[in-house]
Simulated scan of single mutants.
Amino acid sequence: MSIFSKIKDAIFGHKATPAPADRPQIPAGMDGSTAPAPTPTVDAGPVDVEQVLKEMSAAKGNPDLNYQSSIVDLMKLLGLDSSLDHRQQLADELGYTGDKDGSAEMNIWLHKEVMRQLAANGGNVPASMLG
């Protein structure tokens, strides 16, 4: 799985399927059995990226992370490896063409590009994070 996919999955999450007890039952058939109704597909709309990140930060006790503009802090908040090696891999995935030396320029570009990609994949990203 790509590093961007891990970032996206951590923010967008996975659609939960209701537990069997929460599913409506189809009326009894001729044999007297019941079966769970098909699970409806619900389109919850765009994911509010800023809200999700705020909730994750709060759940972790509001760690002092500048995830709004730092790729390193964003990855830490999401529980991902933020090492230079992983950021270089992310840079390759996203098409960064500059020096992959961990410079501020690379890291700023990575954060902005991750936010642009999240927006392109259905995320609602505030303009302040798109840079």
Rank of each mutant, 00 (worst) to 15 (best):
P27D: 00
N107E: 12
P40D: 08
D48Y: 02
A104K: 13
I108L: 14
P20I: 10
W109Y: 10
S128H: 10
P27Q: 07
V125G: 06
N66L: 11
K6T: 11
A91W: 00
V52Y: 09
L65M: 02
I108A: 14
K76Y: 07
P40K: 10
I71C: 10
S5G: 12
V114L: 01
P63R: 08
M30V: 07
I7E: 06
P27H: 00
N124P: 03
V47R: 12
F12N: 03
T34R: 09
L77D: 11
R116Y: 07
D9H: 09
K6I: 00
T41Y: 11
M1W: 07
S69A: 15
L84R: 10
A28M: 04
D22P: 06
S69E: 10
M1D: 10
V47N: 08
T41W: 07
G79I: 03
T41M: 12
A120F: 03
P63Y: 04
A59W: 01
L130F: 02
E50A: 09
Q51H: 13
S70G: 04
D92G: 10
S83W: 00
E105K: 14
I108V: 12
L110Q: 03
L110M: 01
G95V: 02
E55K: 14
I108H: 12
T39G: 05
P24A: 13
P38S: 10
K6E: 15
Q68R: 15
I11N: 09
Q25T: 06
G102K: 04
